[in-house]
Design a protein around this nucleic acid. Structure first.
Lengths: 180, 180
DNA sequence: TTGAACATGTAAACGGTTACATGATTTA
DNA sequence: TAAATCATGTAACCGTTTACATGTTCAA
């Protein structure tokens, strides 16, 4: 089965409700989906060009003073293609977790070194979880109850929190096991 | 920061304790690390060649009947490079979860479609968790207590189980939220 | 006036996968 | 004798990232 490029759908989804510039798309991804979906500039701008050629988006330049911003709007063809992808089963991408790989090879190094990795991971997870909880407690309550996106943003955010919670529990367990 | 190729270390780790063929490395990855680390044949064979050129591994052909198998052995240089990687902090790779992306855009589709995705995800997670538990209950008890790898295999396996447990809990919560 | 953020893009390199190619051995 | 598994490899393609390139606007 051939792997298809999903960057196009991530971008189409970001402009489904309202037109945005490439830079805006980048910013929104960074602040909302970065935990489960990221794109670099170097994939957003060229993909917008491809989408325009495919007639999935239309662009117009808007000026604020001298500075122009290219605003992209989804077309009906783009909406059709996006919606069709939305109905297609989600595929699981191959995961690559370097910490687990290093731990799997733990017998080739010292207990001390293994503990360093685990403790660093624990700190990272605690930090990440805190960041998500802050979004949950500060940003989410500002969104109006009638915003149809709210429930979905809550769900994806909750996924991040629960994931790090689980990782924290597992890491603590591993540290205990190694120290004992 | 430039991304470095980690396939080499995954391979070196697999032959650290005893020499193996490319095919064997592939099989072991499939049965032991596939949940957090995978490599395709097309990356293992060429990388073994590169590692040989770098003098990190040595190969000799062993015959069972007419069929030859190329067995790779790690050199002291290879061990040195592997151990140095083992001490280096683990990097987090960019995660890409298509299910979460589709759910994030949930407002653009029907409740019914969102529920289909969630239920399919739930089934998958339950299945995967069961597979891991089977390994934990059937395969792990066969490994001798004095095998230094055992504790690490237990930890990485437990990570998989706890991950899917957390995903199951989250997915059920989402389904309830959507249905209510 | 300097640095941060806004804003858009390209070229080259890299990593990984798919598909292709080949043939031996074992098991049903 | 056919299918599955063992066993090794290459070429082409694709997607992504890094590094480069350029310039504006705003706030400290």
């Amino acid at each position: 089965m051939k792997k298809i490029n999903k960057t196009r759908y991530a971008i189409l989804g970001m402009i489904f409700e309202k037109p945005r510039s490439g830079y805006e798309i980048k910013q929104i991804m960074l602040s909302s989906t970065s935990n489960f979906w990221q794109e670099s500039d170097a994939s957003i701008y060229p993909m917008l060009k491809i989408l325009e050629k495919e007639k999935c988006v239309e662009s117009k330049v808007e000026y604020t003073g001298k500075r122009g911003r290219k605003i992209f709007k989804i077309t009906s063809l783009g909406k059709k293609k996006f919606s069709s992808w939305m109905e297609y089963p989600a595929e699981t991408e191959t995961r690559r977790d370097e910490l687990l790989l290093k731990l799997f090879f733990g017998a080739t190094t010292t207990t001390k070194n293994n503990l360093i990795h685990l403790k660093r991971h624990l700190d990272m997870c605690i930090n990440e979880k805190r960041k998500f909880e802050k979004i949950q407690n500060v940003f989410l309550p500002q969104i109006k109850e009638n915003n149809p996106n709210k429930i979905f943003w809550e769900m994806t955010l909750e996924n991040g929190i629960m994931y790090f919670e689980s990782e924290i529990k597992w890491t603590k367990q591993c540290i205990k096991k190694m120290e004992g």
